[in-house]
Design a protein around this nucleic acid. Structure first.
Lengths: 147, 147
DNA sequence: TATTGTTATACTCTATAACTATA
DNA sequence: TATAGTTATAGAGTATAACAATA
């Protein structure tokens, strides 16, 4: 067996890769479940919550479809439900085919509450020390591609 | 709303919590999408893949329902489809009400291929250096509650 | 009486296709 | 001709409820 200086105590790189990617999937599942739990107390279905969270800035419905990886037709339904609840409004874009979705003041207020609830329940906050959190953040950013 | 100068890395803890938990959700979504892409080439629907990945050891159908957060009745359907494909078999448990789901040899083979595909496409492998991966692993474990 | 797995059924979420209006 | 949003409809995924066998 040849010496493999890269692998160190963690062993075979393929084994490490399977282990780490498996861990990441588990964390992802946990994060998703935790997110659902965190917002369960609000009277808002999960798919509407996700739409709200995507609306940082007013955005064309098409962009929302891209961001949520769903069809444009589905966004129409989401927008209808959010408008009924007075959480967003459709505003015309410069291109007159386009409608932007914009959070109303109530929408922004609720979005803040949702963010706080998610943050408060997050395993990141509950299980990691401040030092560990500072270590984790740049790694997460790098995973997302922010060089 | 008042002007809020950039708080810097030390920043307000609540702001940090929202930022980090938001990042984690983004990573989770990315991981989920990446997982789907990685196994898209296999002729196996995603829900069957997830079931396969849960079957490390033979397990009661009930346990699988718990692990996948779905109803027992749904597991019956999954098991039927996996059995049709000769990937799992139902084996009787000690408690004669219980049936265990166990991967067949073909199932174990396929499960290995799925793991490898997921690992190979993982952003963990593609975007992080070996050092960063070694830093990340214990953090992920701690997030999952492994002391 | 409570629990496991099954069956039949119903519901929820999301996509597809066709349509209008702009570009 | 191509694109944004809408509408109506269809399909996939999953749950609910009732049931049989076992504990």
């Amino acid at each position: 067996m040849t010496e493999r200086p890269e692998t160190g105590p963690a062993g075979d790189p393929m084994v490490e890769a399977r282990r780490l990617s498996g861990l990441l999937i588990q964390v992802a599942e946990r994060a998703k479940a935790e997110f659902a739990d965190s917002v369960a107390g609000f009277d808002l279905p999960l798919h509407l919550v996700r739409a709200m969270m995507s609306l940082d800035q007013p955005a064309p419905m098409r962009d929302l479809a891209d961001h949520l990886s769903c069809d444009r037709s589905y966004i129409t339904g989401l927008a209808d439900q959010l408008e009924e609840r007075r959480l967003v409004s459709r505003v015309p874009g410069e291109d007159r085919r386009v409608k932007l979705l914009e959070l109303t003041p109530e929408g922004r207020e609720l979005r803040g509450q949702l963010s706080d609830a998610v943050a408060a329940h997050s395993m990141v906050l509950q299980r990691l020390t401040p030092d560990e959190r500072r270590t984790l953040e740049p790694l997460l950013r790098k995973l997302l591609g922010d060089a």
